[in-house]
Simulated assay, not measured.
Amino acid sequence: MSTSRVRVRPRHCDAQAMVHAARYYEFFEDAFLDWLDLHAGGYRQLRERTGVDLVIVTSGCEYRAPARLDDDLTLDCEPERVGRTSLTLRCAVRRADEVLAIGRTTYVCVRDGTPVPVPDALRVAP
Results as ranks from 00 to 15, higher is better:
V110T: 12
Q16V: 14
T88Y: 00
H12E: 12
E78I: 08
F32W: 12
M1D: 09
M1K: 09
R5S: 14
C91S: 12
R104C: 09
H39G: 03
T3I: 12
Q16A: 15
E48D: 10
R5F: 13
C77N: 08
A92Q: 07
L100W: 04
L46S: 03
D76W: 14
D112T: 10
R95Y: 00
T85S: 05
R90P: 01
G60C: 08
A96P: 07
V6W: 15
R44D: 10
L73C: 06
V19K: 00
A15K: 15
H20N: 13
D53L: 12
M18G: 13
Y107I: 00
L122M: 01
L73A: 05
E62H: 14
R104S: 08
D97E: 11
A31F: 09
P10N: 07
A22R: 04
D14F: 08
R44N: 12
Y107V: 01
T105M: 09
P115F: 07
V19T: 04
H12W: 02
A15P: 13
Y43C: 07
E80V: 14
Q16C: 14
T85E: 00
P66R: 07
R68Q: 10
V57W: 03
R81S: 06
R44M: 10
S59W: 03
H20C: 08
A101N: 02
T3Y: 15
Y63A: 11
S86P: 02
R104M: 08
W35V: 03
V110Y: 06
A121T: 13
P66W: 08
R5M: 14
D37Q: 10
L36F: 01
L87T: 02
G51R: 09
G113L: 07
H20Y: 12
C109D: 02
I102S: 06
V82N: 06
V8G: 00
T105D: 04
V82M: 10
D72C: 04
A67T: 03
L54A: 05
C109Q: 03
T3K: 15
A121E: 12
Y25R: 05
Y43G: 04
R49G: 11
L89D: 00
